[in-house]
Amino acid sequence: MAAGGDHGSPDSYRSPLASRYASPEMCFVFSDRYKFRTWRQLWLWLAEAEQTLGLPITDEQIQEMKSNLENIDFKMAAEEEKRLRHDVMAHVHTFGHCCPKAAGIIHLGATSCYVGDNTDLIILRNALDLLLPKLARVISRLADFAKERASLPTLGFTHFQPAQLTTVGKRCCLWIQDLCMDLQNLKRVRDDLRFRGVKGTTGTQASFLQLFEGDDHKVEQLDKMVTEKAGFKRAFIITGQTYTRKVDIEVLSVLASLGASVHKICTDIRLLANLKEMEEPFEKQQIGSSAMPYKRNPMRSERCCSLARHLMTLVMDPLQTASVQWFERTLDDSANRRICLAEAFLTADTILNTLQNISEGLVVYPKVIERRIRQELPFMATENIIMAMVKAGGSRQDCHEKIRVLSQQAASVVKQEGGDNDLIERIQVDAYFSPIHSQLDHLLDPSSFTGRASQQVQRFLEEEVYPLLKPYESVMKVKAELCL
Rank of each mutant, 00 (worst) to 15 (best):
I358E: 12
P446I: 00
R459I: 13
S474V: 13
L44W: 10
E148G: 03
Q375V: 01
T347W: 14
L362V: 09
K170Q: 11
F160A: 03
R396D: 14
S306F: 07
D178A: 12
G240V: 07
G197K: 02
G240H: 00
Y294Q: 08
L121Q: 11
T244F: 09
D268Q: 11
L272M: 15
L132M: 04
A392G: 01
S257A: 13
F232Q: 07
Q325E: 04
T354Y: 04
V168A: 10
Q61S: 04
R137A: 11
K402L: 12
I106W: 02
R372E: 09
R329N: 11
C399R: 09
L124G: 08
V262D: 03
V115Q: 09
V115P: 10
V405L: 15
S290K: 09
V324H: 00
V315W: 15
S323K: 01
R303M: 07
D11G: 01
S112D: 07
R459S: 10
S395P: 03
E148H: 07
G393P: 09
V92R: 02
M316D: 03
A127W: 00
Y466A: 13
E383W: 09
N185Q: 10
C113G: 10
I287L: 06
F460R: 03
D215Q: 11
E80D: 11
W175E: 13
R171W: 00
P24Y: 12
F208K: 07
F345I: 07
Q161S: 03
S257T: 12
Y243T: 14
V138G: 01
K295Q: 07
A49S: 09
P378L: 09
A411I: 15
T158Y: 02
A47R: 10
I265E: 06
S474D: 09
T111L: 05
N185C: 12
K218W: 13
K264I: 04
A2Q: 09
G116D: 09
D178L: 02
E473S: 15
R374C: 03
Y21A: 10
Y114A: 01
D144K: 05
H107R: 03
H159Y: 01
P162D: 04
H310K: 12
G169R: 09
N68G: 08
L362F: 13
L132S: 09
N68L: 03
G4T: 13
M181W: 05
L142W: 06
P162S: 08
T52Q: 11
E370A: 01
Q164W: 08
T267I: 03
